[in-house]
């Protein structure tokens, strides 16, 4: 069995007015929480529509649960749950009635599933209230309840915290983490709020103007955003030895291009430069570096915008 729940290759979607997505390659492994980050209009929802089979790619391929045959998408859809853009609900029905429609069309036996997902999403007490009288947050919760109906293996959520209050956002995050932890649910979640995704995702994809700019694990993202001193000397090996021996600065790394990243002494750069020069090394570059998540993202899409 494939370890990948989703694999998209060279995925392109073209509309009359241009490309919505261009050559997207994306892979989601079983058990991951994949966070797709992008501004409004970056192509997130279009990508999710292609993944869920609501729309069709202009070119490229999508493999769901190891099966890339577009004719067999229905089998994959049975194992998925999704909210795309906004929760799709019947306004004249109650929460239970909405879930009953989806239970019937998914062919899920037993009405106990309805109570289970209502409890899970905190809507058990919604009673006979019709959805048209629901708050935005309640609708969002019901949308997630619909997506969770039938115990899917792969949950796709497009901006799931839209309309939720701060408490609702925290509860939603905890719910997704719990499902991921306890049931091994794989989650693909899109948002334009980086700080929110950061607390949830284990892998990140940055999308901008229909292109996937970068994909990285949370560890890699943390590394990229960690504050450090960037040092370039004429002899990197000796430079590393100096840092280790004279400054006991074990927390550093030498990059393949010879650049040294030092994560300590951020408040005492003078000691670092003094130790290096005293050892006869010529300092070619010396700077403080590291971004906040937001500034890293802004730099990333800013760079792309200048292309």
């Amino acid at each position: 069995m494939s370890e990948y729940i989703l694999r998209a290759k060279q995925l392109t979607k073209k509309f009359k007015n241009g490309f919505a997505l261009q050559n997207i390659n994306i892979s989601v492994k079983k058990g991951e929480i994949y966070g797709l980050i992008g501004q409004n209009g970056a192509g997130k929802s279009t990508l999710l529509r292609l993944i869920t089979g609501l729309a069709f790619p202009t070119s490229g391929s999508i493999e769901r649960f190891g099966n890339g045959n577009p004719q067999e998408i229905a089998a994959a859809q049975k194992r998925m749950g999704a909210i795309i853009e906004h929760p799709a609900l019947f306004p004249n029905m109650t929460a239970k009635e909405n879930l009953e429609v989806h239970r019937l069309q998914k062919g899920i036996p037993g009405k106990e599933w309805i109570e289970k997902v209502l409890k899970l999403t905190g809507l058990y007490d919604a009673g006979e209230k019709k959805v048209k009288h629901f708050s935005l947050g309640m609708k969002q919760r019901l949308g997630i309840a619909v997506a969770l109906l039938g115990d899917p293996e792969f949950l796709i959520l497009d901006e799931p915290t839209n309309g939720l209050d701060p408490t609702g956002i925290v509860e939603m995050r905890e719910l997704i983490k719990k499902l991921n932890r306890e049931k091994g649910l794989t989650v693909f979640i899109s948002s334009h709020i980086l700080s929110e995704l950061y607390q949830l995702a284990t892998v990140f994809g940055f999308i901008h103007k229909g292109k996937l700019l970068e994909e990285m694990t949370k560890k890699q993202l943390d590394e990229k955003c960690r504050k450090h001193i960037r040092i370039k000397v004429d002899n990197p090996a000796k430079g590393a030895m100096v840092l280790d021996r004279y400054l006991s600065a074990g927390d550093f790394e030498v990059m393949p291009d010879g650049m040294i990243k030092l994560y300590r002494y951020l408040d005492d750069v003078r000691s670092v430069s003094a130790a290096l020069t005293k050892s006869g090394l010529i300092i070619e570059h010396f700077s403080l570096s590291g971004d906040s998540l937001e500034s890293y993202y802004t730099k990333l899409i800013g760079g792309a915008g200048n292309e």
Binding site: A75, Q77, E85, A88
Partner: peptide
């Protein structure tokens, strides 16, 4: 927009 759920229902 409930057609989305139906199309994605498998």
């Amino acid at each position: 927009g409930v057609i989305k759920n139906q199309v994605m229902s498998g």
